[in-house]
Amino acid sequence: MPAALRRLLQAVPLLLLISVLVFALVHAAPGGPLAIYLENPNVRPADIERLRRSLGLDQPLPVQYLKWLGGFVTGDWGFSFTDGRPVTARLLERLPATLELVGASLVLALVAAVPAGVLAAVRRGRATDRIVSAVTIAAISLPAFWFGLLLQLVFAVWLGWLPSSGRSSLFGSGIGDRLAHLALPATVLAILHAAAWTRYLRSAMGNVIAQRFILAARGRGLHERTVRYRHALRNALLPFLTVVLLDAAIMISGAVVTESVFAWPGLGGLFTEALARRDYTVLMAFLMISSVGVIVLNLVADLSYRWLDPRVRA
């Protein structure tokens, strides 16, 4: 796939640019990795200086950046300032939890959004459309933290049906236990995204339905169902897919709030912790990995156009 390869190569300067930006931002945030030690009365200035030197933070920023870049390119991402373990190990052990949560949310959200969006578009202005609209608007009006805490209160504290947080029980092995833990955070993430997706799909389909070639298809005497799903949905899927893929990329790094509320052991939680401690190596790796993820998914989205939209393919 040479087109894909070319795009990947184009991504290299892009990533370089991102890395400079992000490095500057991360280091511009007030307080460094050592600020946390200031709270402890037993740590003296000499200790701080000693730690600063040992972490290489006493060198000028450009030197630190080049060192970081050299390491990053050669696969040596350094050690976490927090616990002294390799950054790669810290990211890798968090990744499965995030993929699990994002995967589940994606499936849930798609299952909810596609039928709801199609239905609303087809029955535009009627009761079904109104109900879908009311529900989606309610959902996009809810802050994730707030919605998450509400679900937690209802299903974990009052009803006792589901665990309030975490990813697994200590001795509760098995898929049932995992699903129970997954239920609330995945629902929160899914609903927030499904609501937005429903509205996009509804609009995109409404748009397509009104277009001439659909009218033409109807005119040719094609069955209404065929028109609706074969032609309208297929054409509406193009912009919809863009949104879904982008959201998926954003979810991987952006479930910060949901992971925090549900103590989910994923990358979002790692970011919050690393930002609070200004763990530069972890922050840089997290932001770079997220960027690579978005770039790859963008590529996938672009390639899918060719496949999905016959007009672009032509």
């Binding site: 991504a11 892009l14 640019l17 991102i18 930006l21 992000v22 931002l25 991360v26 511009a28 945030a29 007030p30 982008l246 990329a249 954003i250 790094s253 952006g254 910060v256 709030v257 970011f271 930002l275 997290f286 932001l287 997220s290 960027s291 690579v292 978005v294 770039i295 963008n298």
Partner: peptide, 19 residues
């Protein structure tokens, strides 16, 4: 757009508002 999109939004905002 890719560069702006690639950096996650809420984390980016959190860093920006810290600065």
């Amino acid at each position: 757009t890719d560069a702006m999109l690639a950096v996650p939004r809420l984390p980016l905002l959190m860093i920006l508002t810290a600065i």
